[in-house]
Design a protein around this nucleic acid. Sequence first.
DNA 1: TGTAACACCTGTAGTTACTAAAGGTTCAAG
DNA 2: CTTGAACCTTTAGTAACTACAGGTGTTACA
Lengths: 130, 130
Amino acid sequence: MVSIGDLSSKTGVKIETIRYFERIGLMPIAERKSSGHRVYDETSLRRLTFIGRCRELGFSQADIRSLLGVEDNTPSCDEILSITTHHRTSIKAKISDLRKLERRLSEISSTCLSNDSPVCPIIESLSEIY
Amino acid sequence: MVSIGDLSSKTGVKIETIRYFERIGLMPIAERKSSGHRVYDETSLRRLTFIGRCRELGFSQADIRSLLGVEDNTPSCDEILSITTHHRTSIKAKISDLRKLERRLSEISSTCLSNDSPVCPIIESLSEIY
DNA sequence: TGTAACACCTGTAGTTACTAAAGGTTCAAG
DNA sequence: CTTGAACCTTTAGTAACTACAGGTGTTACA
């Protein structure tokens, strides 16, 4: 039986965020001492650890909800794998988008390096009307 | 002299977003017809085109503000190159983070494929307390 | 036993970068 | 002259928290 501060340091999830997770239903409403202070057991610790890791892996709250079976019942192995695969796919897409961006930016930057004209070619190329 | 709808279709920036840009000071307060309808000239078109392209390149609003010299005066070529380079660096960092994520996810997924145990190894590994 | 420092409580507002909706005017075409 | 599209303002909603204000509880030490 630990306090919210202890739970926070064990999981690396900030206190405010734990309370927020309770508010939005990702964490169950914690039991309280007579003073109103929250107390947690190992089940809570496991659940918050899970949420924290999912967060580190970039899963959305909606995904985490599904993985935890918050609104529906506990998901099957198939459903879990499907959520994970879907997330991987969107990460790959994001990587490819960012790589394109990076290439464009490097092209644009290169126009500047060897230029001391009064007008900035970066700004010019970005404002150009076709 | 064009309407907000025309400006929107020329730049690909949604009407609501144009009004929003005006509200937050990225775009100057537009001149109005007696009816209150906004009218724009080519200067506006160039400015919005610039903002739109920056947005596509993933620059933050703060960056765009600096590039446009909204709060300070017009930035020098050096400042422009510095903002651009900084942005590139953070994109590269993001790419490398996402790649790590992707690898972790693929490891995690692989534990599931060949397993029909009653307990999901993905969920287990993510909830595990050390 | 007193008191200081700290942990905890609730509730609300702020963040980024928009998007959408409600409820009303104006414009342009037939 | 009417009708439908385009425009206006203002406000609220989104994701996923974070931070603050103003108060109560707990604990360590003198």
